[in-house]
Amino acid sequence: MTYNSPLKNKSFAFAIRTVNLYKYLSINKKEYVLSKQLLRSGTAIGALVRESEQAESKTDWLS
């Protein structure tokens, strides 16, 4: 299924904002540990949304 859902769009926009915040924190504030964790967790949301879209059955989706 290839459609643009609001959840997909919002998670993508959130990932873009997270990457920009990561750049700001690592370049301007010299914060590396916290910004790296923020980047990993903020971009994982989109991956989880896409993974749930690829579920083969309802039980697969629930897990």
Results as ranks from 00 to 15, higher is better:
31 E>S: 13
61 W>I: 15
44 A>K: 10
48 L>Y: 05
63 S>E: 15
24 Y>M: 10
21 L>T: 09
38 L>C: 06
51 E>Q: 09
48 L>P: 02
44 A>G: 04
40 R>E: 02
17 R>G: 12
7 L>I: 11
20 N>H: 06
9 N>M: 14
7 L>G: 12
20 N>E: 06
43 T>D: 01
47 A>G: 05
21 L>K: 07
6 P>N: 12
9 N>V: 08
11 S>T: 09
26 S>P: 00
59 T>N: 04
57 S>E: 03
17 R>E: 04
21 L>V: 15
7 L>Y: 05
14 F>Y: 10
19 V>Q: 01
39 L>N: 02
34 L>R: 06
24 Y>T: 12
9 N>A: 15
63 S>P: 01
50 R>N: 10
14 F>C: 12
52 S>D: 13
14 F>T: 09
52 S>L: 08
58 K>Q: 05
21 L>S: 06
15 A>N: 03
54 Q>A: 09
63 S>L: 11
25 L>V: 09
18 T>L: 03
55 A>R: 02
38 L>F: 06
31 E>W: 03
33 V>D: 07
14 F>N: 08
58 K>F: 08
45 I>C: 05
33 V>K: 05
40 R>T: 03
46 G>S: 08
32 Y>E: 14
32 Y>P: 01
10 K>E: 11
34 L>M: 10
58 K>G: 07
12 F>S: 07
17 R>T: 10
33 V>F: 04
54 Q>D: 11
29 K>A: 12
44 A>L: 07
46 G>Y: 04
39 L>D: 00
38 L>V: 08
35 S>K: 01
34 L>I: 13
43 T>W: 02
43 T>H: 00
11 S>P: 03
61 W>L: 15
28 N>P: 04
39 L>C: 04
28 N>M: 06
45 I>K: 01
13 A>S: 12
11 S>N: 03
18 T>R: 00
46 G>Q: 02
37 Q>V: 09
44 A>C: 05
2 T>L: 15
30 K>P: 02
25 L>S: 05
3 Y>S: 13
2 T>G: 12
35 S>Q: 02
41 S>Y: 07
43 T>C: 03
38 L>I: 10
32 Y>S: 14
42 G>V: 04
19 V>K: 03
51 E>P: 01
62 L>E: 14
54 Q>F: 03
46 G>K: 00
3 Y>D: 14
13 A>K: 11
53 E>Y: 08
31 E>C: 05
6 P>E: 08
6 P>F: 04
38 L>K: 02
36 K>N: 10
37 Q>A: 13
13 A>R: 10
49 V>F: 06
30 K>R: 15
46 G>V: 02
52 S>M: 09
16 I>D: 04
25 L>Q: 13
14 F>G: 06
4 N>A: 14
48 L>E: 07
4 N>K: 13
30 K>V: 12
14 F>H: 12
